[in-house]
Design a protein around this nucleic acid. Structure first.
Length: 776
DNA sequence: CAGTGAGCGAGCTTCCGCTTGACTT
């Protein structure tokens, strides 16, 4: 047994450090937190100064037992968890739970996994910082109180199993409010004027110059008037201005920026990026992937320098040290970078290679020289009016970091400016054409997973380890959905002056298409409106920032954590009680108007099975009539006309084989019901207009397909049905499906063999639907 | 798998942050 036991949080880290420290040190991992507030109940003793009830998590029992054993055998225990609030708390929980002795326990920290950093940490041990631990306890307890008191309010007032919390509820709020901005947005248009002009360059060669007018016309008439003025005007080069410009590389990756760039450049989802990064980390190829730091170790900088030098030469090197300006950053780690900067590529699957490439380039670029540009503007005057055209061009004089990496933007239509021809001042130009094009202001874009993370980080809400899980949670609770939005067709006006004539044309464009964006659901909107009304303080975008200040004060020893929590709870809890007692059930009801046929009230609300339209009320003698909203409709935006449409289904469209055919829309979209069977309508058919003839055709097709599906029926009563499925042949028996091993030709299958396979594969092959197994 | 639109109500759901696997589909 070793003389020294070092405990870190991550097993991959443990492995690396063990190599640096030699045989006298055994390095083990705690796998993060080992204890937490009890899962059952709230885990806080309100009668006893908010005393937290900590329990070793079930999945950590084994780890704790092993650590206990190792600690007992060691002469000195080094608690080397991260140097931030959570890390300090982990160290303290270990100290407490492993029943360590202050005399032979040392607390050490390092921000980077390099030999120097670790040896130096060992040289400078300290004690556990109780104030920092208290700040963590306050954070933990506050989050538990908010989450576990707010969620039951939602169960009672909206729907069971919902949840609310300091982070997730604000994330949902961002999405709901963005959606409202989009709904309320009114596009404004203006005429943008661009000219194509002919002239000669300094050598007398003919050249074409594209220039933009420095003014936009809001009225069509003004644009027409302007073109009219240009007809007989003279144009000349008024001025040529050349200015040097610089572009600097972005800092190395943090969790948030990696998620954003991987989304923009590689199309990865936030959780996908983290999964891939985790595997790169575990195989030792990159540093830790959950970090808010942009800092690079000296070692990394030095090797990068050498790499750049040998790749591109000395003048491409520029050592930079970046500092974070992220709210609440704790910087317990380095930035995300390749472990070995000299490895330009790595082994692995395609995704790992791509992500590594991105990380390598970003890191290298961060230590490279600025790109030097030359921006040229050519100003062109028109003899008949005061407006000026300008042609702009950009030339890269020295590429610098652009040699390897350029950060992407979320704007898709950034025009690349190229090189301009060399012109002479005073040179006359003639019109090839001048076009005034109507342009519309853009709706605000919906959040993608990655842009939501950026916004949360900007607000200081959430941590690198929680961005991805938070986004999963708000989708699991059905507050938001990831989806696409098709483009709208929009007409716009183009006025063109060419060969002395002005033409006026309408063109159309597709605009506003969005892919893989976050949309609020009706439940999300109702929950958000309810929470922001009754708990505006918690839902405030600054709430986290405010409590962080409080936690900082605890960490500085200026405030007692119990005092902080007490102050919060005394204010918060009565509001919870009051809301439980006095608020209405929240169904998001909206009155759309009156059904013209019956004269009864038409409303929409969230029903037991989702959003529903309702004609009449429960109090009336005649029962209300219901119709579910379509998937793409929402309570907030549905119109009375659209709602009335819904009541036209189910619709009888005729008879076939003496049985009625009924068209309706179910959970899986529109369908035809006939003689107890269901037939999906293809996307091309509209349930409102589909004819009996078409329906019969669809029924016929499905029957044909069914026929081909059955390969054969085995057994005395044909109880084993061998079928052709999406993944190849399989057979069914008593409503369960069974695989046919590749080694068996389905045609040679016998009833006996089937029986055998049933026995092998079990009678209930994974019938537990949907829910992931609960961890205990 | 394709419907439903209630309350003589069991028992359960839920937070945020720190870490990895163990589970099928």
């Amino acid at each position: 047994m070793s003389k020294n036991l070092v405990v870190v949080e991550s097993p991959a880290k443990a492995k690396t450090i063990e190599k640096f420290l030699g045989p006298d040190y055994q390095v083990m991992s705690s796998f993060g937190h080992i204890r937490d507030l009890a899962e059952k109940g709230i885990g806080i003793d309100f009668e006893n100064n908010y005393k937290p009830l900590y329990v070793v998590s079930t999945d950590k029992k084994k780890v704790v037992a092993e650590l206990k054993k190792a600690a007992k055998a060691a002469e000195t225990v080094w608690l080397a968890s991260d140097e931030d609030r959570e890390g300090e708390a982990i160290a303290w929980h270990l100290f407490d739970e492993l029943k360590l002795d202050k005399k032979n326990t040392k607390r050490i920290v390092f921000h980077e996994i390099t030999k120097d950093a670790i040896l130096s940490a060992i040289e400078h041990p300290r004690e556990i910082d109780d104030n920092l631990v208290d700040a963590q306890q306050a954070r933990r307890i506050l989050d538990r109180i908010v989450g576990f008191e707010l969620s039951p309010v939602l169960w009672r007032k909206v729907k069971p199993s919902l949840s609310a919390g300091r982070v997730q509820s604000v994330a949902v709020r961002l999405i709901v409010e963005r959606e409202r901005e989009i709904n309320q947005f009114v596009a404004e248009s203006a005429y943008r004027v661009s000219a194509v002009l002919n002239t000669v360059d300094i050598n007398g060669n003919p050249v074409v110059l594209k220039a933009e007018l420095q003014h936009r016309f809001t009225e069509k008439q003004a644009a027409l008037d302007f073109l009219e003025l240009c007809k007989n005007a003279d144009f000349k080069v008024e001025d040529i201005v050349t200015k040097p410009a610089k572009k600097s590389p972005a800092p190395p990756f943090t969790t948030s920026t990696l998620q954003q760039e991987a989304s923009r450049k590689l199309g990865f989802s936030v959780s996908q990026t983290m999964r891939i990064a985790q595997s790169l980390y575990e195989s030792g190829k990159i540093t830790y992937m959950r970090t808010d730091s942009v800092n690079l170790s000296d070692l990394a900088i030095n090797i990068s320098k050498a790499e750049i030098k040998s790749m591109a030469g000395d003048k491409y090197v520029k050592v930079r040290r970046f500092t974070t300006n992220t709210k609440g950053a704790q910087e317990a780690h380095e930035a995300i970078r390749p472990t070995y900067m000299n490895a330009h590529t790595v082994d692995g699957n395609a995704q790992e290679k791509k992500l590594y490439d991105l990380i390598w380039k970003r890191t290298i670029a961060s230590q490279m020289a600025d790109a030097e540009l030359e921006k040229t503007s050519i100003y062109i005057n028109c003899s008949s009016n005061k407006y000026q055209f300008v042609a702009t061009g950009e030339v890269i004089v020295f590429d610098g970091f652009l040699k390897v990496y350029m950060e992407s933007t979320d704007d898709e239509d950034v025009e690349v400016e190229g090189l301009l021809p060399a012109l002479k001042k005073g040179e006359p130009l003639t019109i090839d054409e001048i076009a005034a094009q109507q342009r519309f202001s853009q709706k605000p874009p919906r959040y993608s997973e990655a842009t939501l993370v950026r916004k949360l980080e900007e607000l200081g809400i959430g941590r690198p380890s929680t961005y991805a899980p938070t986004i999963t949670t708000i989708q699991n609770r059905t507050y938001v959905e990831k989806g696409d939005r098709p483009a709208d067709k929009r007409d716009f006006n183009v006025l063109k002056l060419k060969e002395g004539k002005i033409t006026d044309k309408i063109k159309s464009e597709n605009t506003g298409a969005e892919k893989s964006k976050l949309f609020p659901t009706d439940i999300g909107i109702v929950v958000n409106d309810f929470l922001t009304e009754y708990f505006p303080d918690i839902l405030n975008y600054n709430f986290t920032a405010q409590v962080e200040k409080e936690f900082d004060s605890i960490a500085d020893g200026k405030t007692q954590w119990v005092h902080s929590i007490d102050k919060f709870y005394k204010k918060f809890h009565p509001v919870v009680e009051d809301t439980m007692k006095n608020s209405e059930r929240q169904v998001g009801e909206r009155v759309l108007g009156v059904d013209p046929k019956s004269g009864r009230k038409l409303t929409v609300k969230i029903g037991r099975f989702g959003p529903v339209a309702q004609i009449g009320t429960a109090e009336e003698e005649e029962k209300p009539v219901f119709a579910s909203l379509r998937k793409e409709q929402s309570l907030e935006s549905i119109t009375i006309e659209e709602a009335l449409e819904l009541f036209k289904l189910p619709r009888q469209i005729g008879t076939f084989e003496e049985k009625e055919m009924v068209v309706a829309v179910g959970r899986f979209g529109p369908y035809i019901r006939h003689d107890g069977s269901f037939y999906s309508l293809p996307k091309t058919e509209d349930p409102m207009t589909v004819t009996a003839e078409k329906a019969i055709e669809i029924i016929g097709e499905k029957r044909e397909a069914e026929k081909n599906k059955l390969i054969c029926a085995l057994g005395e009563k044909g109880e084993y049905q061998v079928l052709n499925g999406r993944f190849g042949p399989y057979f069914t028996f008593e409503k369960n499906n069974y695989k046919i091993p590749k080694s068996i030709d389905p045609k040679t299958l016998t009833a006996e063999k089937c029986q055998e396979l049933v026995a092998q594969q079990g009678t209930t092959p994974a019938k537990k639907k949907g829910f992931a197994k609960k961890k205990k």
